[in-house]
């Protein structure tokens, strides 16, 4: 016989208290077992009350969505910015949770069948150790210096992103509620880019301001990236040039300066 929702509800409440009791007493094993039981009871409850399972979200080709957004930006970018750009300019939904495993999947694919895809989504490389930079995605077909980030790159790339977004907005005439927060996200943090009113972000002014600040940093940034890229070409193999060096290789890259 199926348990009634009321009785399930009571059992759930009881189990919750039991989990907390177990945790308070430091009994993690019991807590884990109780949690599993709790989850099962909750599933039954949801089936009993709501019937049927969750509707399946439509799977869109994530790597293509990311590729679009990254191509627009032209510089290494974090998932959050990629999602924001996607939401502003492209249709369909891109959940940031789906970006987390992306890089690993790409690396696996490359290792099993190198260069079988027209492009791969990889991590940017850090200029010092040529190791994968956490949370920054790039496209494999970009020139190596673009895929490397040095100390000045976070700011330079932020400004470049702003310029690219502003240009795209002007070119396509895009606007409206989806684009405004993205423009504002840049304008609020670039001197001279924000208008007199809060949230007033004019793409033309953004373009001018971002270009002006980028001018200040670009020399040092480009030089550091170029040097690091030279090093990478000398020291790293194909896979590593795309997906980054491990620590041993990283130590080599630093000429054994690490313990």
């Amino acid at each position: 016989m199926r348990e009634s929702p009321e009785s399930l509800e009571q059992r759930i409440a009881g189990l919750r208290s039991a989990v907390r009791r177990a945790l308070a007493g430091g009994d993690r094993t019991a807590a884990r077992a109780l949690r599993a039981e709790l989850r099962a009871a909750e599933d039954s409850w949801e089936r009993a009350v709501l019937g049927g399972g969750d509707p399946k979200p439509v799977l869109l080709p994530v790597r293509e969505q990311v590729h679009h957004a990254l191509s627009l930006l032209g510089v290494p970018a974090a998932p959050k910015l990629i999602v924001a750009v996607h939401d502003a300019f492209f249709s369909g939904e891109l959940a940031s949770s789906r970006l987390t495993s992306l890089r690993r999947d790409e690396e696996r694919s490359f290792r099993s069948a190198p260069y079988s895809r027209p492009y791969y989504l990889c991590a940017a490389l850090t200029a010092d150790l040529l190791a994968p930079a956490r949370g920054l995605l790039v496209i494999s077909t970009w020139p190596l210096p673009t895929r490397i980030v040095g100390p000045y790159s976070p700011r330079a790339d932020f400004l470049t992103s702003a310029i690219r977004v502003a240009e795209h907005t002007l070119r396509t005439g895009a606007g409206g509620d989806a684009v405004r927060p993205l423009l504002w996200r840049f304008a609020a943090n670039i001197p001279g880019a924000a208008g007199d009113h809060p949230h007033d972000a004019d793409p033309r002014r953004l373009l001018t301001a971002a270009t002006a600040e980028l001018e200040v940093h670009t020399g040092k940034d480009t030089e550091q990236r170029r040097q690091a890229a030279d090093r990478a070409r000398r020291q790293l193999g194909d896979v590593e040039q795309l997906f980054g060096a491990r620590l041993a290789a990283a130590a080599r890259a630093q000429n054994g300066r690490l313990p």
């Binding site: 850090t126 150790l129 190791a131 700011r155 990283a250 690490l258």
Partner: peptide, 12 residues
Amino acid sequence: VAIESLDEVGGN
């Protein structure tokens, strides 16, 4: 504007 990220050393 230079930033040094010190939360890991080559993934370590």
